[in-house]
């Protein structure tokens, strides 16, 4: 009980307290301590990577062995992962190697394409937003439209009212970015910042223990 529950909480408290104090202490010892902590955190993180790889292989091998629905695609995933490992062992990781080519022309291409799907999705999201169900959604929509027009030359061209001294769409969009958008961001950062701080304190004090897992 002591080793399983109390000691980890003690470590959390000590490390949390020490790292918080370290920020205010500029001495040589403090700096060396910080550098050592960074080295240790990186090494621990390295072993944490093992969890990810193990989970991946376990999940997919399990699907294949049980012939779960779409198990064939799990098999493809496993084979692709093994292929990459073998390619790196045989041909190295340099540019032009099989390893890099496989990554660039398959995974990187697929990821870039999935990312580009955002262009289609943002259009359907914009269409959905156009159906503005409330005045607040209308405000979101109007701000978005002004922003979009303000970022292209056409915004200036259609701003006929500038002849009477009124600001152009580009200038309005710049004001929206610099004023209400900034105010909203600040409000969120100030609030979310407090939330993060409370969470850090709760972790250090041992009030928040979800990350340690169940008892």
């Amino acid at each position: 009980m002591f080793w399983k529950k109390k000691v980890p909480l003690l470590i959390v408290f000590i490390m949390g307290f020490v790292m918080a104090v370290q920020y205010f202490v500029p001495s040589d010892f403090s700096k060396k301590f910080y550098d050592t902590y960074i080295d240790w955190a990186i090494v621990i993180g390295i072993f944490g990577g093992v969890l990810g790889f193990f989970s991946f292989f376990r999940v997919h091998i399990h699907k294949v062995s049980k012939q779960a629905p779409n198990w064939q695609f799990s098999l493809i995933s496993i084979l692709c992962a093994l292929l990459m490992i073998i390619a790196a062992l045989l041909g190295g990781r340099g540019s032009g190697s099989l390893f890099m080519k496989l990554f660039l022309y398959t995974s990187a291409a697929i990821n870039a394409t999935v990312f580009s799907l955002l262009a289609f999705y943002i259009s359907s999201a914009a269409y959905r937003a156009f159906r503005a169900r409330s005045t607040q959604a209308l405000a979101l929509l109007l701000a978005a439209v002004i922003m979009m027009l303000g970022r292209v030359p056409i915004g200036d061209s259609i701003s006929f009212w500038t002849a009477w001294g009124w600001p152009s769409i580009n200038e309005i969009s710049q004001w929206i970015l610099n004023v209400p958008n900034l105010a909203a961001k600040r409000a969120i950062i100030l609030g979310v910042g407090l939330g993060s701080l409370l969470m850090s304190l709760k972790i250090i004090l041992g009030i928040e223990r979800t990350y340690l897992g169940s008892e």
Partner: peptide
């Protein structure tokens, strides 16, 4: 839990100030 306590505890303390 020991490794997690070390990483997450230190990370939280680091972030606080």
């Amino acid at each position: 839990r020991y490794a997690l306590a070390f990483s997450i505890g230190a990370g939280s303390g680091f972030m606080l100030p």
